[in-house]
Write a protein that binds this DNA or RNA. Structure first.
Lengths: 239, 239
DNA sequence: CGGCGTTTTGATAGCCATCAACTTCAGTGG
DNA sequence: CCACTGAAGTTGATGGCTATCAAAACGCCG
């Protein structure tokens, strides 16, 4: 078994409990291995795909960090999500056979290419995979609705608190610290995602630090009081 | 052929070009007819499903108007979408086998019940249907990202203009006027969807009327200058 | 016709954007 | 090794947009 074939096997991937293979049986996993045709490396700042490009595949983030963003006709930019290892990108492209957003690597990254026609083909054979694909798309829909709630109803402090909690929670699920993280994105990108200006992001970080809730030094963040953040996101009761 | 069987057939439905059957071949359509087990009537103000309820089916809106909304732990409410005839609701429920939001009828409505296990089953047999289901979910993801752009970057006037244009465009695709519409939702529901307060919605309507862009009388809206609305959504260029 | 939910409109306040200056950091080349 | 340079981040002052509070007008339904 040469190195190449090891590299592209879901069955041996340390992300298999988080990524596409999650919950599949060994036999089904082997079939998945067949469709993971290859990997792609993306340098920091480069795009995995851009809006308008032909859609051919989904991508599973193997390592590194991405942002997805859409640009409106008049040049407004909105970050619609940050993706880390084990997460799937590209489902926006299915409707119109072309991508609706840009996916840009925030650091050197590697993705598994999942040709979508192969996914559909295999989904027809294995209902477990089929259902799993549906769940992944549904999860994305629910996630987006959560962002709508954030953008529609929350104030700056609440948004940033929710953002930090969401990030550490996802990192923790991948074996990282519950209370410590390194931001892979700029204040401006955080702001674009949360619907606020970069200055407001910076100020809000500073306020959290004054309040003793977190320590921030540039991209490094230490969460000192998780419950305080949770209280910010979910105030005792507003009525 | 009794009335009942006429009623529940996709193949004879006047919405078939917009709804789930869109683009399917006659043969595939017949199979779809089998899984459309029944209809459900929902009275104005009643819920089609609520957050936390077990997920069993998607629903195709046959007539009437719905809103979907999520409620956060502390009671904040966010309308995540308005659905009209020919549109599919319920995909939020797939991930966790229970619905993540409430779907509430804004007027007396009727939906076709699409048991999801039957959809998956039939999807395995007919790749056209399979791909179509994927497109519908992808469309929802892209729509949600558009709402994020709206909530994250637009100001009140731009949001309401985008909202009105989106509504008439969808109504026009269903054979209604391009310039006239009756809102099925309150100012408060519009505001919740657009991330603004009902007073701001009302004021913005008034401003549009002063500017001669629209006529508003309660729920009735006449769009007098579509291009003016489009200019509001897409300013000449911001840079 | 009365009652109530919905909508409109006004006055005021507050949050965040904007503009601006300065600091810190990372990467580069002398 | 260190100075240089530009990007990223911080902080301050100010203004504007929208929320909030309040009251009145309107329309719907029993």
């Amino acid at each position: 078994m040469d190195i190449q074939s090891i590299k592209v096997a879901c069955s041996g991937c340390n992300l298999r409990e988080l990524c596409l293979p999650m919950g599949l049986k060994p036999q089904e996993l082997e079939h998945l291995d067949q469709i993971i045709s290859n990997r792609r490396r993306i340098k920091r700042g480069a795009s995995l795909f851009s809006a308008g490009e032909a859609f051919t595949a989904l991508y599973a983030v193997r390592s590194g960090f991405f942002k997805t963003c859409i640009t409106s006709a008049d040049g407004r930019d909105q970050v619609t999500g940050f993706q880390m290892m084990g997460e799937i990108i590209g489902m926006d492209g299915i409707v119109h056979d072309q991508h609706a957003c840009d996916a840009i690597a925030l650091e050197d990254a590697e993705v598994c290419v999942l040709p979508f026609d192969r996914i559909e083909q295999l989904s027809r054979e294995f209902s477990a995979l089929q259902h799993h694909v549906h769940k992944i798309m549904s999860r994305e829909i629910v996630r987006d609705q959560g962002v709508m709630l954030l953008l529609g109803t929350m104030r700056a402090e609440e948004r940033l608190a929710a953002f930090l909690l969401n990030l550490v929670q996802r990192l923790h699920a991948r074996g990282f610290s519950q209370s410590e993280l390194v931001l892979r994105m700029t204040r401006e990108e955080i702001g674009s995602y949360l619907g606020m200006k970069l200055e407001t992001v910076s100020r809000t970080f500073s306020r959290f630090m004054e309040d003793g809730i977190i320590d921030v030094r540039q991209r490094y963040v230490l969460i000192k009081d998780t419950q305080a953040l949770e209280r910010l996101v979910n105030p005792p009761m507003r009525n």
